[in-house]
């Protein structure tokens, strides 16, 4: 590297400038100073993402049924042109059936807790950055979605809104390492803090008092403490108990109820009855 050479100096100048620019952008964004400008860019990108995801889903659904495709091919040999129409109709009905099942599950979930106000949203993207677990949904501030709102699916809690633009929002999943949710066990009633495990997919319920006898298979749900999440939203089940008598607390490994890889439709809980703990914070 001969730095006396003018083109070399320009080259390294550009590299240094871009690295400096990236550092500056990171600092500005993490302090929230780019929010307005970025939301302006993110909205059209979310529209592109939504369109691409819809096409991808259609393609994946078609590829996921090879046996039916083989049957369809045999029929094509026998019935030629007519079967093309039947195959198309079959695929459409299958997709509708899948969507109907998802909507039925969501409806049943909504019926279990009618006191919560929800907005239905479609998952249009997933973060692929290693170590970060988040999704992008197609509802934003114009639909009443705000930062911090809980997000659930038919089977249980998904996460909370991390960032919201006018027409889309980023949701940080409960399995992300930065996630910490007050939770309670269904049978033993022990309460603790549920932390995301990051890549493993499972979570850890910590700070559980040793007086409770935990059991594998116990249901874990939100406790509602802290007021950030409603009570009794299912989260998952205990798969392993880590109890050491020498320690002050025990912990449990929790498998989430939601399959985050196949999430298509979610609920954003826009309003719920928070536990009122303000009376305890008053200084006499």
């Amino acid at each position: 590297m001969n730095m006396n050479d003018a083109p070399q100096r320009i080259r390294w100048g550009i590299v240094a400038f871009l690295i400096g620019l990236a550092i500056l952008l990171s600092i500005l964004d993490s302090t929230g100073r780019l929010e307005g400008a970025l939301n302006f860019v993110r909205d059209p990108l979310a529209a592109i993402l939504s369109w691409t995801t819809a096409r991808t889903d259609g393609l994946l659904d078609a590829l996921s049924g090879p046996r039916d495709l083989q049957e369809a091919r045999l029929e094509i040999e026998r019935l030629q042109a007519r079967i093309d129409a039947l195959e198309r109709e079959n695929e459409e009905l299958r997709e509708i059936q899948g969507e109907a099942q998802i909507l039925l599950d969501l409806f049943n979930r909504a019926r279990q807790s009618p006191e919560l106000t929800r907005v239905t949203a479609t998952v249009i993207g997933q973060n692929t950055t290693p170590g970060i677990r988040s999704i992008i949904i197609d509802k934003g501030q114009l639909d009443g979605v705000m930062v911090g709102m809980p997000v659930e699916a038919a089977r249980g809690l998904v996460g909370r809104v991390f960032r919201a633009t006018a027409n889309s929002a980023q949701v940080i999943l409960i399995t992300d390492s930065s996630s910490a949710i007050p939770a309670r066990l269904g049978t033993s009633r022990a309460a603790g803090i549920l932390r995301g495990g990051g890549l493993g997919g499972s979570m850890v319920l910590e700070w559980l008092d040793l007086q409770y006898q935990l059991e594998v298979g116990e249901v874990v749900a939100t406790s509602g403490l802290g007021g950030d999440f409603p009570q009794n939203i299912p989260i998952g089940r205990v798969t392993q108990v880590d109890r050491r008598e020498a320690e002050l607390f025990q912990r449990a490994i929790v498998q989430p109820a939601v399959d985050f890889d196949s999430l298509e439709i979610v609920f954003v809980i826009t309003s719920f009855q928070r536990l009122d703990i303000s009376v305890f914070s008053d200084v006499p």
Binding site: L25, S26, I27, D29, L38, L49, N127, I132, I172
Partner: peptide
């Protein structure tokens, strides 16, 4: 832009 990590 599609991620929750800080831009940059």
């Amino acid at each position: 832009l599609f991620s929750v990590t800080p831009l940059g």
